[in-house]
Amino acid sequence: MWLATWLSNLDRRWLFLVMGVLVLEPLLFPLSLPLRVTPPVHGFAAAIDSVPAGSTVLMSCDYDPASIPELVPMTRTAFRHLLSRRCKIVITCLWSGGPGLVDSVTSEVAREFPDRRYGVDWVNLGYKSGNEAVMVLMGQGIRNVFPRDFRGNAVATLPIMRSVRDYTSFPLLVNISAGYPGTKEWVQQVQARFHLPMVAGVTAVSAPEFYPYLQSHQLRGMLGGMAGAAEYEVARGEKGTASKGMDAQSLGHLFVALCIVVGNVVSFLQRRRS
């Protein structure tokens, strides 16, 4: 019983310390736990593979720096995947904090492809306020909604935009989203209305919300949180930051599960005693 009493009075800072050590240790000394690629991730990769080489894909990155660990790895891998298929990529952002981050990530990946040039093979159209209204307006013409790109260039002068008119110009929409506006709104306003095939990468906490869309094939594939990003990296044969982070997340989850079990055992013992 002394153990139960001791645990019930445990200073929560000890829990913080253990959690910190469990997250830090595998980042310094990776455990390299095996990852299994799940069907939604297979669907995501297959949808990009099915895009005809050389076509122009719309990629909407709707997140801000708070979601870097989960969503930047998927942005990186998806962008690399598309470039490796010689696709052109038009990037938009409906979160005001996102375009700078997305520009850094895409520029970093694009350096791996020295023959690809900004404005010819990819463009970052930046942020536009208006949420769902922007999505619907893009269906009437992309250039009307985004007259200038993130770097201040007139969009009409960019070679990549000459073949882009509206959603009919794209064979696929890749949406990486952290919340509102994001995947749900793209499905409701664009996929359902303009019948644009779509895949999504979302945060782990919001992933359950999109399983109905996955089952109805409104989403061709989905990456859920860091686990989804890591599985995508494995499916692509890459070793990125998500795969490295999965060991830390594994131990973190294990510790939270342990906290739930031990907390309830302690509570049960105390209730029985009283």
Binding site: L10, R12, F16, P65, A66, S67, G252, C259, G263
Partner: peptide
């Protein structure tokens, strides 16, 4: 932003132990 989000891991552990 990243720091604020990362703090969740610590509070979730504490909440799991004390509140769940």
């Amino acid at each position: 932003s990243g720091t604020m989000f990362a703090l969740l891991a610590f509070f979730i552990a504490s909440a799991a132990f004390r509140a769940f």
